[in-house]
């Protein structure tokens, strides 16, 4: 305990030197300083090419922009925040990898052309930021989700799908949950979204945890990278802003089974 404390204290010194005003934004966003102030406070911030934010070459659908964040090139990562400067709900996901690798893929809504970024907090207290501008038609956050238009959202609420793929370097987990993810920005539909999701191991130890905001796409989907040497089924739990709890159990052989099924 004492040793850990000392290490943190030693790391804090150079970090403090970097602190104060956030660095100038290479994307020239009008909202950078505002978001940097809110998200990072006085913590040091660097724009870091070791964080990759993969974005598609075009936004085919402003309701579903795939974002893949890979910060595995950094040291120990404590938190990954995905946000879009000009969205009415800027932050989409706050991810705590805990025992997972610093990788997260998901899909978010865009309400207009905006920078889309990942901010990655390493254990030394420094935020590492990367991202790019994404063009998009309007309405990703302020048009109703498809399931509201069809009227069948309640019939499928909480349907949980997923699989895990065991690899040499990681166990890749893909999850999706049927949920309208209402933003509250559509007339007569109050905000209603999944707000917590946790993946735990068979012993009940939390491996990865996230806070989810309504700017994540309808029927949210996530790709996580867990340690390669897991055993037993993973437990998935989620809760929405209406207080509903959702739970699932994810066997580690599911991905291999899907791949085998496809080959037949």
């Amino acid at each position: 305990m004492m040793r850990k404390f000392l290490t943190l204290a030693m790391l804090a010194a150079p970090a403090a030197a970097l602190a104060q005003v956030p660095p100038a934004d290479p994307l020239g966003s009008p909202m950078w300083e505002y978001h940097a102030g809110k998200l990072f406070g006085h913590a040091p911030v660097v724009f870091d090419p070791r964080v990759t934010v993969a974005l598609p070459v075009l936004t085919e659908n402003q309701h579903v922009l795939p974002v893949t964040v890979d910060a595995r090139a950094l040291g120990e990562v404590v938190r990954i925040v995905i946000f879009a400067d000009l969205n009415p709900i800027p932050v989409a996901v706050e991810y705590e990898p805990l025992a997972a690798q610093a990788f997260l893929a998901t899909r978010i809504k865009l309400d207009q052309r905006t920078p889309v970024r990942a901010a990655v907090l390493t254990a030394d207290g420094v935020w590492h930021v990367a991202g790019d501008w994404v063009d998009a038609a309007g309405g990703g956050c302020s048009a109703p989700p498809l399931s509201r238009v069809r009227g069948d959202w309640a019939d499928h609420l909480g349907e949980l799908r997923g699989a895990a793929w065991s690899g040499a370097d990681a166990t890749r987990v893909r999850l999706s949950l049927r949920h309208p993810m209402d933003t509250g920005l559509v007339e007569n539909i109050p905000v209603y979204n999944i707000d917590r999701l946790t993946v735990s191991d068979a012993a009940g130890r939390a491996l990865a945890r996230m806070t989810i905001h309504a700017s994540v796409s309808e029927d949210p989907a996530f790709t996580l990278m867990l340690a390669p040497d897991l055993s037993g089924a993973l437990a998935v739990t989620a809760r929405d802003t209406g207080g509903y709890d959702f739970a699932g159990s994810l066997g580690l052989e599911g991905g291999a089974r899907i791949a085998a099924m496809l080959r037949q």
């Binding site: 598609p56 070459v57 579903v64 949980l160 893909r174 099924m261």
Partner: peptide, 26 residues
């Protein structure tokens, strides 16, 4: 080609996931 592949992923992916991934509710 890359542009249309990216669009096609957007058109088909969620449907394919729903068709191929098993339900895991416990």
């Amino acid at each position: 080609a890359r542009y249309e592949l990216t669009r096609s992923v957007s058109h088909f992916y969620p449907r394919l996931e729903a068709a191929l991934f098993p339900r895991i509710e416990s």
